[in-house]
Amino acid sequence: MSLFLQIALAVILVMMLFFLWPTFKHWQEHGPKAKAGDWQAVILPLALVVGLVVLLIALVR
């Protein structure tokens, strides 16, 4: 049962890859480009997320 479900999920995930490809191409080619300071504005909150996850790991250890 489990192996059959794993194979089914793998097939669907591969199908999802083909579904995602046009969206990825669209954003890559026509999506807005980052301006100065944009990446810093993303990296800071993501670094805080990493810090929070590390804190949560320390809490459950």
Partner: peptide, 29 residues
């Protein structure tokens, strides 16, 4: 509240999503 347009992340998040999907399929087995 940031008053910033984060839609420049589009290419990055969809590329990341595809890489993660490949890794998930590999790790299923």
């Amino acid at each position: 509240t940031a008053k910033r347009d984060f839609s420049f992340l589009g290419g990055f998040v969809f590329a990341g999503m595809m890489v993660v999907l490949i890794a998930v399929v590999a790790n299923l087995f």
